[in-house]
Design a protein around this nucleic acid. Structure first.
Lengths: 186, 186
DNA sequence: ATATAATATGTACATAGTTATATATTTAAC
DNA sequence: GTTAAATATATAACTATGTACATATTATAT
């Protein structure tokens, strides 16, 4: 299960609470894996049951206690084992492509609007990669001295960039085709 | 729910059994959505409960009966409604990218092996698109006269082609980076 | 003749993921 | 001073998906 191992991986950098892990996700793993808070808390419980993380409850006067999770040696072993296991090929699932597939039965103008919205999302993602994520990786690499790690983070960022660029380009081509259809038959 | 509407879409071409729908999936929708047989049967039951499909049981002597599903007028309306609804942006989930992200903690040689396996998958998919899926679309378009539909099918095929090509290219770049790492520190 | 694969329809169980809700504190804005 | 947003930790209920198993027929290969 990738979520469990993604959490194990993040905790291998430093101990954290469930909430902090969710925040860490949103700046990194989010782009190729994500989880909601309830899912993270449930998975952390599973990890504790298996002895892969240990919990320290930090009591604070008059405030709810923080549950800080840290990876155990068994957890580090499990992470290494998982990293060496052959990767599963993901099953892509995209509702837009289903809509395009059956596009003949839809209004071309509506389909074009869908494509424009979808294109805007990936164009925005591309901008975010350049302006937010790339500097963030550099910042972390310099600040924490994780230069070796940063090389691998950059590889996944590069995947995101290429995917978003591909999505925008395909969308332009699809939009041209759909709008031609609209003119001819609408 | 995209699965339900993908089934509705496939049934809009012609009536079919659950088994036939699974086979149809594997030649088309499979590349951007898929479902197992149990899931298809369960969803067909839901669709029947909502009045979107009607079932004809074809009894055959000494053989188990075929349950042929056909879309109702209410079902066609639901499909049109769904096609016009704004598309959800999918959350990408790829275990390989999680492994690359934490790649610093793995053996570079093992990571390279993962990337090679992943690359081979997308290279094979690209070949399959050219040699199997593209001719299949042409075949269907000519045979059934669904030339208008075929344009939309081709748009989704083009997405698959571009994605696979991007995946192969990124993999080559990532492999070069990882193997350099292996030489330097392995 | 025998075995295997393909056709055909499911149930039961397990896993994964999302949405809604509850609670309480701290910080910033008005 | 009050309100709203962000921080922080969850539980419950629901939806979606996947794996294993059960059953029976037909066609094909050996």
């Amino acid at each position: 299960m990738s979520l469990l191992h993604a959490l194990l991986g993040l905790l291998s950098y430093r101990p954290a609470t469930g909430y902090e892990l969710k925040a860490a996700f949103e700046q990194s793993i989010y782009f190729f894996w994500n989880a909601t808070l309830p899912q993270i808390y449930r998975t952390l419980n599973q990890m504790r049951e298996r002895g892969w993380v240990a919990v320290t409850v930090e009591h604070q006067e008059g405030r709810p206690s923080r549950k800080v999770y840290r990876v155990t040696e068994a957890g580090r072993e499990e992470l290494r084992r998982w990293l060496a296991a052959p990767p599963e090929i993901p099953q892509p699932r995209d509702p837009l492509l289903v809509r395009v597939f059956f596009g003949r039965q839809a209004d071309p103008a509506v389909l074009a609007a869908h494509l424009k919205m979808w294109r805007a999302h990936y164009a925005g993602l591309l901008r975010r990669y350049e302006e937010e994520i790339a500097p963030l990786i550099h910042h972390y690499a310099v600040l924490t001295g994780a230069r070796e790690d940063a090389r691998y983070w950059s590889l996944t960022l590069e995947f995101g960039r290429r995917f978003a660029r591909m999505a925008v380009d395909w969308c332009d081509a699809a939009l041209a085709a759909v709008m031609q259809e609209d003119k001819a038959h609408g």
